[in-house]
């Protein structure tokens, strides 16, 4: 029985798809069987970030509507055993996703994998609530920026109200991934600090992912960042996040600014 995880944020462009691909690949790299599911119907991108865009034949809507069987739509990753993708439709509307159809597909996915990761569309409308509906665990992706924090707060409210778990009166496990974090700017007071965001949102921290050119490099070549450059700072943050999701205790690494030797010397003399 899989654990179903939703990657959500409210706001668009904060790093949900990047995070979905990275967590999915990292879980597979750590020996788990994983399916990443693109719920961003009409604006699918997970296939592109995963490098599978030319292999899409059937999609989530085809399976939900019964026009294709789940195994026909699943795309198995060529680099990583155990990693599969269920792409979204590029042309159809999200209204083609029926509640009952999605529930049935999620049940089928649960039987097949250890983990199912749902990449949510932006917004707080039906697309986003459908993506979170069957989740056991939520990863809220947030940037240290006012509008992103505000939207995360709204999404946390929805997770406690609109999910199947919440409706049954069960607790919804929620974790925060703070991403695109720039330690230098936070230190200089130009950007919200980690503890500011944690205090405001008050959900546990799963990872701090620094702003990094490695993310763009990885998406350019269609490879999750954890696979493309496992030694890079964002990849390590995501790999640690996955260990925590699996229940391991891992010390939190907070990104720090890489200072030049000159500024270090200068600071030491000034101190």
């Amino acid at each position: 029985m899989a654990k179903v995880l939703v990657v959500t944020s409210g706001k668009g462009g904060v790093g949900k798809t990047t995070t979905t691909a990275a967590l999915g690949a990292a879980l597979a790299q750590q020996g788990q069987s994983v399916c990443v599911v693109d719920f961003d119907v009409g604006l699918r991108n997970l296939d592109l970030v995963m490098g599978a865009e030319r292999r899409v034949v059937y999609d989530l809507i085809n399976v939900v509507q019964g026009d294709a069987k789940l195994p026909q739509a699943l795309i198995r990753d060529k680099r990583l055993d155990g990693l599969s993708l269920l792409p979204a439709s590029q042309t159809r509307d999200k209204d083609a996703l029926t509640d009952a159809g999605v529930a049935r597909v999620m049940d089928e996915l649960r039987d097949k994998f250890d983990w199912v990761i749902c990449d949510s569309p932006a917004g707080i409308e039906r697309g986003a609530t459908l993506a979170m509906r069957h989740a056991d665990v939520a990863v809220v992706v947030c940037n240290p920026e006012v509008s992103s924090v505000r939207d995360s707060d709204r999404i946390i409210g929805l997770l406690d109200a609109k999910t199947a778990r919440a409706e049954k009166g069960e607790a919804m496990e929620k974790h925060l991934i703070l991403t695109r974090y720039e330690p230098g700017r936070a230190e200089r007071g130009e950007m919200l600090r980690i503890d500011d965001v944690l205090e405001i949102l008050s959900i546990p921290l799963l990872a701090v992912v620094p702003e990094s050119e490695e993310v763009l490099k990885a998406s350019n070549v269609g490879s999750p960042v954890t696979l493309n450059n496992p030694a890079s700072a964002p990849a390590r943050a995501y790999a640690d996040a996955v260990r925590r999701l699996k229940g391991e205790t891992v010390a939190m690494v907070i990104p720090t600014e890489r200072r030049s030797l000159m500024s270090k010397l200068f600071q030491r003399r000034a101190a």
Binding site: G157, D160, A161
Partner: peptide
């Protein structure tokens, strides 16, 4: 303000 308006809590639970 927004939590009061939208009910950010597990009020339903």
């Amino acid at each position: 303000h927004e939590r009061a308006a939208f009910g950010r809590s597990d009020l339903v639970t």
